[in-house]
C-alpha cells in the first residue's frame, strides 16, 4: 500500500515535471522570481521567530515587500500567459510596465514604512 502510494507520488511528480517543462521560458522566469521572493520572505519569518518582532515595522515592510512583489509577479504571470484567453489582447510589455509601476509604488510605501 505504502509502496504503491510512493510510486504514485513519483509518477505524479514526474508527470507534473514533464507538463511544467512545456511552460514557456518567460513564465518560468516569473515562477522563479516568485519562488525567490517567497523564499526571502520565509527567511525573514524564521528570523523573526528566532529574535522576536522588534522592530515590527521593519519586519512587516521586509515581509510585505517580498509578498507584495510576489503577488504582483503572479499577476504579471496571469497577464503574460498566452493560454489565458482573458488577457489575449494585452501586450506582455504593457503587463510588464504595469508590474514595474506597481512595484515602484509598492516600494515607495515600503520604504516609508521601513522607518
Amino acid at each position: 500500500m505504502a509502496k504503491s502510494s510512493s510510486t504514485d507520488a513519483v509518477t505524479l511528480i514526474r508527470s507534473l515535471r514533464s507538463a511544467y517543462a512545456a511552460t514557456p521560458t518567460n513564465l518560468k522566469i516569473i515562477d522563479l522570481y516568485v519562488v525567490f521572493a517567497i523564499a526571502t520572505a520565509l527567511i525573514q519569518v524564521v528570523y523573526m521567530g528566532i529574535v522576536g518582532s522588534f522592530p515590527f515595522n521593519s519586519f512587516l515592510s521586509g515581509l510585505l515587500s517580498c509578498v507584495g512583489t510576489a503577488v504582483l509577479a503572479v499577476c504579471l504571470r496571469i497577464q503574460v500567459n498566452k493560454e489565458n484567453k482573458e488577457f489575449k489582447d494585452l501586450a506582455p510589455e504593457r503587463a510588464f510596465a504595469d508590474f514595474v509601476l506597481c512595484n515602484l509604488v509598492l516600494h515607495l510605501v515600503i520604504m516609508n514604512f521601513l522607518g
Binding site: 525567490f36 521572493a37 523564499a39 526571502t40 528566532i50 522588534f54
Partner: peptide
C-alpha cells in the same frame, strides 16, 4: 529593546542572499 546577537543578524543577512543566488542560478 533587546537586540539579537550581532552574529545571528549577520548570518541571516547572508542567508537572505541565498534565494537571490538561487534565482540567478535558475
Amino acid at each position: 529593546e533587546k537586540r539579537p546577537p550581532k552574529e545571528l543578524s549577520l548570518a541571516f543577512f547572508a542567508l537572505i542572499f541565498l534565494p537571490l543566488l538561487g534565482f540567478l542560478i535558475g
